[in-house]
Design a binder for these strands. Structure first.
Lengths: 196, 196
DNA sequence: GTTTTTTCGTAACGATCGTTACAGTAACGA
DNA sequence: TCGTTACTGTAACGATCGTTACGAAAAAAC
């Protein structure tokens, strides 16, 4: 009994998902959410509860509808194919939508409000400096014969920075030093050696 | 001429650095900053300018005084030692202080205010699920002979997730799909193969 | 048709955000 | 000693944050 809901709950969740994906949890305001969903604040509260509750429902939906490659990856015949499928799935998801790049789960704590955009850009720029330094160093290594002719300095620099970024995220998540050292060891085990 | 500054600018910058390291850029409020530095708001503004300007000075100080292993790493004789030194330096910095783990530059956009802590924990938990799934899958691979006896499933799962997290950060920073695929290829090149 | 129940939108809540007048105070030059 | 200059802290600014009373509106129940 009673009045019917006038908006589509599924569509509203999808719109909220895009907002959180682009702006992160704290960076997404109710002004953003009402604009994207076309639903006024009290209606969002009565349908989904808190902002935190809304985000958790969005997160569940994200894993269910977007990160669907994980179960498929786990069914691959070999561990190497599992890893390859995981990575290609993540790459596809992280670059599929130009308006909300990256991963919602990471962006949830990595992105922020529009006012902080200059700071975010400054952090990105400062890491780009490190990448250039590494690439140039690896180009030198290639010229010196330390790296084989087939080595790609830019890819090596990007890979090393990816591992460093990933470890920084894991450290923030509470990973122990031993665990991080095991990650570094694994990363190093693939490092190309001199051809001589 | 005029009255002298009563607080130590260097000490105040260090205190602000710790706050930004722990809470990120947007998560750090002036209430936090005045409490940590012992300096009232207007004094911080007159000494450092904006919140954004303060953060940029903190970031410069961070690279100068904490991320001092990068120039040393670049001087290592081989590219492999460069990578190894970079990683061990990062690991040490990321786990040195229990009160502010991770990297300030990453935390600057990854951490947030105290109110968002439950959401952050939820995101961490959801990724922990993926790690467990991967570890169990790699344990199975080891039992099946797909992975050699020397392989460490937990380390492989942590490594794969580190690369995935790092790629998510890079995608948010605007990395192209081709660049991410090169990163994945490099990560895969070190994957342990079956012993047969 | 009347009552009941649920949803809708306006409008406001208190709190906190980053920022800044402004008055009081201390150190310098003259 | 006086005037100038710069720093100190109180206190408040307007804006925005997440959240919610509350009355109008609409659909089911009787």
């Amino acid at each position: 009994m009673g009045r019917h809901r006038e908006f589509d709950v599924e569509k509203a969740l999808d719109a909220a998902l895009c907002v959180f994906w682009r702006k992160g949890y704290e960076g997404a305001s109710y002004a953003d959410l009402t604009e994207a969903t076309g639903v006024e604040r009290p209606a969002l509260y009565s349908a989904f509860g808190n902002k935190e509750a809304l985000f958790r429902q969005v997160l569940d939906r994200y894993y269910e509808r977007y990160v669907d490659y994980i179960p498929k990856a786990l069914e691959m015949p070999t561990s190497r194919e599992v890893a390859a499928y995981m990575m290609s799935g993540a790459i596809d998801l992280n670059t599929r939508y130009p308006t909300h790049t990256g991963c919602l789960a990471i962006n949830g704590v990595l992105a922020g409000s529009d006012e902080a955009e200059p700071v975010r850009q400054a952090l990105i720029d400062s890491r780009a400096v490190a990448e250039i330094q590494l690439r140039e160093r690896f180009e030198r290594a290639k010229a010196e014969g330390d790296l084989p002719e087939t080595a790609k300095p830019a890819a090596l620099a990007a890979f090393l920075l990816a591992v460093l970024h990933g470890m920084a995220v894991q450290a923030k998540a509470g990973f122990s030093r031993d665990m991080l050292e095991a990650v570094a060891e694994q990363a190093l085990s693939t490092w190309p050696s001199k051809s001589s």
